[in-house]
Structures are given as structure tokens and as C-alpha cells.
């Protein structure tokens, strides 16, 4: 291993096994992965593909059975550095209800910064900032249980952002939301990535969620199955079919158009964009 690598996440030959009563279930095997600061990574996988395990390995909720997970050079299995790792790498979970801890939105967002031991003025500043970032200022004094699912998830997002992480890991954050709030959360993630330069690692079993990703990692049965830009990954129909994944309609269209001999831009992310581009051709 070369010395401390700042500004990146490194997974070095990481495996994770769960011990059962009389057997052993392998969740991840021999994962090697490097994620640099500022990237937008999508991790796609079906159930049991190990994607949630991967998320929990990243901020030290789980420790790897073998191998090493390094966040900015700090290993997740060292107890002294775990606090700093968790400050650097925030997590948003799937169920919006089970990750909100406090009875008032404002205090929910202050929870993380409070635990970091920041002075109250700074905490206040961060609460204001985070609420504004997700557009929830008017909900500041509301009780979380009175919010809609999408709003809850935005509060969860804000409360992680208030810790000012460099990396943000989201474990299926949209799977319990309606399409509208899903879109909204994804737009927020894009903005946070571009304007605040926070690395996004978005985990989903829903290919449509991951179209914004710059790099898509496809997990299957605990290993990296494919990797590349969404366009590259979704091009390989056969390989996707082999593990039972459908590709998003957008990429189906793109491929059909390209087979006709036209060249489609890599940064086309929605069907209206595609339509506009085709019209210009």
C-alpha cells in the first residue's frame, strides 16, 4: 500500500461474510474500488447483491472480514478514527421514518453537529444552511411525523449535510417515495454534487435513479459485475439480461437511434433532452 491517500475512498480487496448459526453467507468478495472526491457514483444491484453491506462498510457501521476500507487514508476498523470518518462520510438510509431521531425538524438537523461538539452559534448557522439547501425552511419547527415521506427524506438529507461531509452515501433513499419526491431528491443530489462538490454515492436497485451518475457500478452476488458510465453499462444488453436487470427506456431508445447511425451525446439524461437532440439532427 502506498502512504495515506487523501481525498479518496479506497476499498482494498474487501470481503465481508456474515456468520450464521451453522453456515456463512458471503455478502461481498474481493472488492477493489477507488472513489475520488467530487465523483457521482451510482451503485446498482438487485436484492442480496451486497449493496447495503457495501454502504455500511464505508462508514464503519460494519467492519470488513478481510481487506481494508480507507476513507481519506483512515481505516474504518480503527476505533480512534471512526468519529472522523463518520464526519467525513454521511449516510442517508432507506426508511425515512427510522432515521429521524428528534421530535422537531430543527433539532433533528442539529443532532449531528451537536455530536461533533460544535459551538451553538456554528450549529445554528449549519441548521439554517442545511434547511435552505433542501428548501425546507418553513418546516423548521414541525414535527417529523407530520411530514410527507419525501419531506422526511429531505430532512434526513439536510441533517447529514449539516455535518458537512465530503462524501455522502445514500442507501436506497428513494425506494419508499412517490415518483415526484424521488425526482426531487435526485435533483437535490445533483445540485449538491455540482455546487457543493460533495461526492455522491447513490445506491439503488432502480436503474432509472442512477442516470445522473458519472460512474455506474453494477454489483452482482457480492462482486463488481460491470463498471463504467451509465451509457456504457446499459449498452451491454446480454450481460444485463443474464442477471435479470432491465435497462431504462432511455438507453433502449438511445441505442436504437445510434444503430441508425446517429451519434447521441453522453450527457443526455432524460427523454425530453433526447427528443430535443433528435429534433436538432
Amino acid at each position: 500500500m502506498s502512504g495515506r491517500a487523501e481525498n479518496m475512498i479506497q476499498l482494498i480487496d474487501v470481503s465481508k461474510e456474515y456468520k450464521m448459526a451453522d453456515s456463512c453467507r458471503v455478502a461481498l468478495q474481493h472488492i477493489n474500488l477507488t472513489i475520488s472526491e467530487g465523483e457521482y457514483i451510482g451503485i446498482l444491484g438487485l436484492n442480496q447483491s451486497g449493496k447495503s453491506t457495501l454502504a455500511r462498510l464505508l462508514n464503519g457501521l460494519l467492519k470488513p472480514t478481510t481487506g481494508q476500507v480507507l476513507i481519506n487514508g483512515m481505516a474504518t476498523d480503527s476505533p480512534q478514527e471512526i468519529r472522523q470518518i463518520r464526519q467525513l462520510l454521511g449516510m442517508v438510509f432507506q426508511n425515512p421514518d427510522n432515521q429521524l431521531i428528534c421530535p422537531v425538524v430543527e433539532e433533528e438537523i442539529a443532532f449531528g453537529p451537536e455530536n461533533l461538539g460544535l459551538p451553538p452559534e456554528e450549529v445554528n448557522k449549519r441548521v439554517d444552511w442545511a434547511l435552505e439547501l433542501v428548501g425546507m425552511q418553513e418546516m423548521r419547527y414541525h414535527a417529523p411525523h407530520l411530514l410527507s415521506g419525501g419531506q422526511k427524506q429531505k430532512v434526513a438529507l439536510a441533517s447529514v449535510l449539516a455535518m458537512q461531509p465530503r462524501y455522502l452515501v445514500l442507501d436506497e433513499p428513494t425506494s419508499m417515495l412517490d415518483p415526484l419526491s424521488r425526482r426531487e431528491i435526485l435533483e437535490h443530489l445533483c445540485r449538491i454534487n455540482q455546487e457543493n462538490h460533495i461526492t455522491i454515492i447513490l445506491i439503488s436497485h432502480h436503474p432509472e435513479d442512477l442516470l445522473d451518475a458519472k460512474r455506474l457500478i453494477l454489483l452482482h452476488e457480492g462482486s463488481i459485475y460491470m463498471q463504467g458510465t451509465p451509457k456504457e453499462v446499459f449498452k451491454d444488453m446480454e450481460k444485463l439480461k443474464a442477471i435479470g436487470l432491465k435497462r431504462p427506456g432511455l438507453y433502449q431508445l438511445i441505442q436504437q437511434v445510434e444503430e441508425e447511425g446517429y451519434r447521441i451525446d453522453d450527457n443526455i439524461k432524460t427523454i425530453p433532452q433526447l427528443v430535443e437532440m433528435i429534433c436538432r439532427i
Partner: peptide, 17 residues
């Protein structure tokens, strides 16, 4: 919930803020 609290550095120290 415990996971969510853990990942936000909850340490059970007095809540100064």
C-alpha cells in the same frame, strides 16, 4: 435508528448545544 444515530456520531456525551 441505532445505526442512524451511530452514523451521526452519537456518543452519549452531555448535550452542550
Amino acid at each position: 435508528l441505532a445505526e442512524a444515530m451511530d452514523s451521526r456520531c452519537y456518543g452519549g456525551n452531555p448535550n452542550q448545544y
